[in-house]
Nucleic acid binder design. Structure first.
Lengths: 232, 232
DNA sequence: AAGCATATTAATCTTTCATTAATTCTTATT
DNA sequence: AATAAGAATTAATGAAAGATTAATATGCTT
């Protein structure tokens, strides 16, 4: 129905993933392509989607497991499977997990678009009042949805990138976030230039956070960053 | 929800029609079997259904034609095709007529049930929640029903759009309303021009609201707007 | 059909922000 | 200590988004 719907594509095969994201992009959907389940989970945490397109056979976190998690955390978010596993038990399992559709590869692209469109047009457009997601970071309160950082009542607006990055770090508080994961999650690609860009954002977050010494962003040389919070 | 749902089956083949109505009946759906398009039309007028299962190839009134009539007269009633015609053009035609699904014969009965169940479970029960019609916005009182904004006894009439927009923002006071949600909610579509239009209205609301500094419409770059109210 | 209120489109100007670049500072390795 | 790679910092840039004002179109009411 409404163009510009945001689709999360979870597909580990390079070729098919590329093909689909290009094709759907052409059809004026906004596509984010996660190459594995963990990437998908991260993206779901910090971006909004209207629909998820799931492969079943994937390493690490398979599609069924991912579907289960989606159903738990985002019960209103429609997802559908696109898979080579056409066994009846798999189909039934897919639907029993709450899938809206179960498509068998190879799928005709036009039919895929028709089915996606059919699904989206049946969705209620009532914005699901997303609760402000807040993190307690020392004396700071970080509101990820509204992109605000509050220190003693004084609030600072964050840009989208700043906010996404801080959220990713906060979700892994006191744990290492590798360059690689950060770049894949937020930039979609892990290359030299994006890494430079990441450094700039780290610096900016540090300046925002320097009012409370208990919280800081540490660097692990050659590995990544840790948002470390000293308790006491 | 899904149990005991009323299904209208439109199928001219005796054998398949019998089989399906028996099977679906066993699964505790209430099935009415129409053997041709005219019968179906008659039944639709006399009874209520939750879903229609349509064959395409039928004498007199074919499935596509029937689908068109259903869409016109009962736009909310979901229908799906079950047919031997698996040509791509037919599939696309089916969806373009508003079908929820398009199944190719022969279909596994269990899968059919799974798909029907999936469709029925997505039928939206729109909660008739009563919106508050009067809002306190700092020193302003906003009366959404009468589209009035009152500041120290002095009232300003708002236009419908202005009022709708302010109400949406007020319902999400201190929380981000994305462009997307605003546009879809108020304009029905999220495109370049409507977005420009939205900007104009934001400007207007801001001029109305500038008598009280505690209330203001903030912009979150690339995301949307926040009606922010400073307490105290 | 004229006149008014309202909504949309257009045109112009301003601001924001991610990225790139340039430079200095750190750390690890030899 | 010398070197190279990684990291931090600051500033510059250009494209996109937003704000504002004005002009046009749409639709009612009389």
């Amino acid at each position: 129905m409404d163009k510009n719907s945001r689709i999360l594509l979870v597909e580990d095969e390079e070729a098919l993933g590329y093909l689909l994201s290009e094709y759907l992009g052409m059809k004026s959907f906004t596509v984010h392509w996660a190459k594995n389940g963990n990437e998908a989970i991260g993206l779901l945490e910090r971006r909004e989607f209207d629909l998820v397109l799931l492969d079943v056979t994937m390493p690490v976190v398979d599609g069924f497991t991912l579907a289960k998690r989606i159903k738990e955390k985002y019960p209103e978010l429609p997802f559908l499977f696109l898979t080579a596993r056409s066994l009846k038990v798999d189909v039934l399992k897919g639907f029993s997990l709450g899938a809206v559709d179960y498509l068998k590869k190879p799928i005709d692209e036009e039919e895929l678009v028709a089915r996606i469109t059919a699904i989206l047009s049946r969705i209620q457009v009532i914005p699901p009042d997303k609760e402000p997601k807040r993190y307690l970071l020392g004396s700071y309160i970080f509101d990820a949805v509204n992109q605000k950082l509050v220190f003693e009542g004084e609030e600072t607006g964050l840009t989208s990138r700043e906010s996404e990055l801080l959220q990713l770090l906060a979700d892994n508080k006191n744990n290492l976030c590798s360059h690689r994961d950060i770049l894949i999650q937020l930039w979609g690609e892990n290359d030299y230039f994006n890494r430079k860009s990441l450094n700039v954002f780290i610096t900016r977050l540090r300046t925002y956070l320097k009012k409370d010494r208990k919280i800081r962003i540490e660097n692990v040389h050659g590995k990544g960053f840790i948002l470390s919070l000293q308790d006491n």
